[in-house]
Simulated scan of single mutants.
Amino acid sequence: MANHILTLCLLVITCSAALAFEPSPLQDFCVADATSSAKVNGLVCKDSKMVEAKDFFFSGLHLLGNTSNFLGSKITPVNVAQVPGLNTLGVSIVRIDFAPMGLNPPHYHPRASEILTVLEGTLFVGFVTSNPENRLISKVLQKGDVFVFPMGLVHFQRNVGHRNAIVMAGFGSQNPGAVGIANAVFGSNPAIPNEVLTTAFQVDKNLIDSLQTKF
């Protein structure tokens, strides 16, 4: 099983390179220096003489994610925060575990497209095109299937099978970011004013108050 996951991880990362849009590095590598306070679009490079194999290494994608939460899903990311050597390379990967009926709720990635591969289970996935069309493009995926989510479009995944599901997803960015729609709208800090949300969603203030307490 571990070899199978490793092979698919390499496939996803290789495919995601084709989706990368970040500038090509001008040196062999630029391992992120987490101790630097310099402000740049990305992370400052560590002295190359101090670079070690561990800067390019992560272990743990073979482990089951804990899905005992209200969504029934668990994301295990491997981006520049976990692997400093990904800095400037324009790729990253995640593992997502789903309990039966588990959900990765509607969200979007502001800095990357996503390519997803199903390792186990059956998923219903989809994304929504931009205004004014707002068309849902969706499909049920089985083990071995691949689906692509274009950068910046709202998308989701739900386990519609009767057993746990596992996916690997690659991104064309070292740090794709994720904006959860419900969290962003109802959990912003400070909160979006009630009159904005009641008008936008055409609901009363009590419902907005209730939703804000949940997020």
Score class of each variant (00 low, 15 high):
M168D: 04
K54Q: 13
Q202T: 02
V148C: 15
D209Y: 11
V203H: 04
D209P: 05
F186M: 09
F98I: 01
Q174F: 04
S68K: 13
T14E: 14
A2D: 08
Q174A: 14
F98R: 07
A32M: 07
P132A: 10
T213G: 09
F124T: 11
H107K: 07
V160D: 06
H109P: 04
V125P: 02
D55L: 08
I5C: 04
V128F: 04
E52M: 09
G72S: 06
Q174E: 13
E22H: 12
V185C: 03
N183S: 15
G187R: 03
V154H: 03
N69L: 07
V160Y: 04
T198L: 10
S59R: 12
K74M: 00
K143R: 15
F57H: 11
V83R: 09
N164F: 06
P23F: 14
T67F: 01
G65P: 00
N66R: 04
N159M: 05
A38K: 05
Q142G: 15
R111T: 12
S210I: 06
F215L: 11
N69Y: 04
G90V: 09
A20L: 09
A17G: 14
C9M: 13
Q157K: 09
V40K: 07
H4R: 12
F149W: 08
L153C: 10
K214P: 00
M101H: 15
T67L: 01
H107G: 03
T7K: 09
I137N: 03
L71A: 12
L103A: 06
V160W: 00
F98Y: 15
D47A: 03
P77K: 08
F186D: 02
V51G: 01
L89V: 00
K205R: 07
V128L: 08
T35D: 02
Y108G: 03
G90I: 06
I181Y: 10
F70R: 10
G177F: 11
T122A: 08
N159S: 11
G170V: 01
G121F: 09
D33R: 07
F29C: 08
P106F: 04
S48A: 08
F98C: 01
G102R: 06
T117Y: 15
K74R: 09
R95A: 08
